[in-house]
Design a binder for these strands. Structure first.
Lengths: 346, 346
DNA sequence: GCTCTTGATGTAACCGGTTACATGATCTTA
DNA sequence: TAAGATCATGTAACCGGTTACATCAAGAGC
């Protein structure tokens, strides 16, 4: 039977070694006030019984679990995977385990996910770009340290990490304008998603500064949105000469849609994304985008959380600026005649 | 102070509602043998105090944690992310949480990772293609259900999920042979990795069956290996007409290396991978590969584990066969003269 | 009216660790 | 040799829940 024999407890070990449970605990936790001979007996008994301490019981009496909760939106794609990788790196370096929870779209289930973490973790990292944190934290245990990552606006006095989406999007628009684009379409993310909204704000600011006209379509952050926008552009004979998508997956969709429609990138239309997922430099033409060091973001979240658990009281918001990565999809056009023109294509 | 006030306990609630802890517990767990008026009082007190149950204490007394441990190799790339996504889907459907642990290359740390899960999870999913499971489980708590995923050969009588790497690789070689390739190079994965070894076995079998000569290079499962093999081929004027890489990332590296060297794919050289990561259909030319439904693999692991936890005793090994996905990188050559020739290229 | 059943509620033991405090042995020191 | 200090070890309370069992009140049946 796999689960035939229950595991030995510390009392079993104590009995087997003919000592008290206190001594067993002391030996196993490496306290030095134990006679060597007794220490020996305990170790022998423990290995003989195959004793493995019960982490749950341990954390109950210590009021410390050495685990931290990670609450993420729908686990999807490379962003999430990179973030988790960074967290894992930092956490395992500090001897912490990660308890994962998926915060679905439904706020009620989200609250439930956070509640079930109480008494199981020492703190939490919460990333919820699509849910109002005030609502989320209203019915939550107090006294659990939390670090927010890229959350919607709120009134929580909590430590927080954010992307500077506005500056990033602004930099991209500036780049497109500097390379001669004038009809710049923004393919935005879903309504209510904080990253989507901020990137759109940055786009608007850049467009206004250049004295251009804003052109905005809404997407879903998925590849398909990009494809359909490209198809629509081709169908309607649009005069757009650059598409700035709110994330890389949509930008890639745009690339595929344009290729299928026979529209030259970057000669006719420039394309840019956001995130710099690994894919961005592998497709062809390679994609201009904004790089976020996602794994490092994850590491930093864990680091700040452990500081907080350790008693620090730093509630500041840390803003991380993305870096503009220029690749082939926004190269200046070879044909100088295009510069500034508004050619119609089919 | 974020963590100024400790959380209320069930005894606090009992005192506030002027009832016993037993009644509070009954109310909060939805037992029906409680007078409505009292039930009301308890709910009121609980919300007034912001009471959230302590999951650790609960699982200690219930001997059930509703969490399952997931032990994965170095969290890297799309494979891992898809697997975790599938597990999360199934787990949250069953009301389970996932406790993540990274099994690094070092077996000692791996054992430690498994030990710290005891008393914290109801069972574990272990994926360790690079570590000997016998060694791993030698000093482990008995009585904890475990499902192995893609592990090295062992003598563990445990339920297990595996990829049919051999059949997959064999199918790919057959496909390459059928489309006229004769000098087929296998870019294998690292020594000691079970997936790598099995894929190589499948390759060997296919090559032998076709009466061809095996050509093998070792790689690291990373893109760079592919690039350097492609460079080496071009440099040495190799007569290889197909490269079958042991995973997609290496295949993509090969594609990039060949493109840079000006070697036409698939006309001069066909390229194929293994895994069907999302990237495979996005690059150009699109990559022929073997599809594994990774997320489903993850779901299935959780499903089998919960069966096991529920008392089932099914120790069978489930073999999942990859599906051959033919795309552009292995299209038959347009120039029929190449068929069977061994042209040298620079 | 009295016993028996039924059902709500409370008391206290238990899950498996940790540790404050008590105990008692050994060693100093006068 | 007796008093005091030091140190290893054991006893039992505690962490925060759950629940077997005891208790007691109300209603049923005679």
């Amino acid at each position: 039977m796999t689960n035939g024999m229950a595991n030995a407890t510390i009392r079993d070990v104590a009995r087997a070694a003919d000592v008290s449970v206190a001594s067993v605990s002391r030996v196993l936790n490496g306290h030095d006030n134990v006679r060597p001979e007794l220490r020996e007996r305990v170790h022998a008994a423990a290995t003989r019984l195959g004793y493995v301490p019960h982490a749950g019981a341990r954390s109950l009496s210590l009021a410390r679990s050495n685990a931290i909760g990670v609450v993420l939106p729908e686990l999807h794609g490379e962003f999430f995977s990179e973030l988790l990788r960074g967290m894992d790196r930092e956490a395992s370096a500090r001897g912490l385990q990660l308890l994962l929870s998926n915060m679905h779209a439904d706020p009620a289930r989200g609250v439930e996910a956070l509640r079930t973490m109480r008494g199981r973790v020492d703190g939490m990292v919460v990333m919820a770009p699509h849910i109002d944190p005030d609502q989320l934290f209203a019915h939550l245990p107090t006294g659990v340290p939390v670090v927010l990552v890229n959350c919607a606006p709120h009134h929580q006095p909590r430590p927080e990490l954010r992307l500077d989406n506005i500056a990033g999007a602004r930099a991209m628009v500036d780049h497109l304008v500097a390379t001669g684009r004038r009809r710049i379409l923004h393919l935005a993310g879903p309504v209510g998603n904080i990253d989507a909204e901020e990137r759109m704000d940055g786009y608007r600011a850049g467009i206004a500064a250049a004295g251009l006209e804003p052109l905005i379509e809404r997407g879903t952050f998925l590849e398909e949105s990009g494809v359909s926008v490209a198809e629509k552009m081709a169908r309607e004979g649009s005069d757009v000469d650059a598409v700035f998508a709110a994330n890389d997956m949509m930008a890639i969709g745009v690339l595929m849609g344009l290729r299928r429609a026979g529209v030259a990138v970057p000669d006719r239309v420039a394309v840019a994304g956001f995130d710099d997922i690994p894919l961005a430099r592998l497709i062809s033409p390679t994609l201009t985008t904004l790089r976020i060091d996602i794994a490092e973001l994850g590491e930093r979240a864990i680091a700040r959380l452990t500081d907080q658990i350790g008693g620090a009281d730093d509630r500041s918001i840390e803003l991380r600026a993305p870096t503009l990565i220029v690749r082939e999809t926004t190269s200046p056009r070879e044909d100088p005649e295009h510069r500034g023109t508004r050619g119609i294509y089919a």
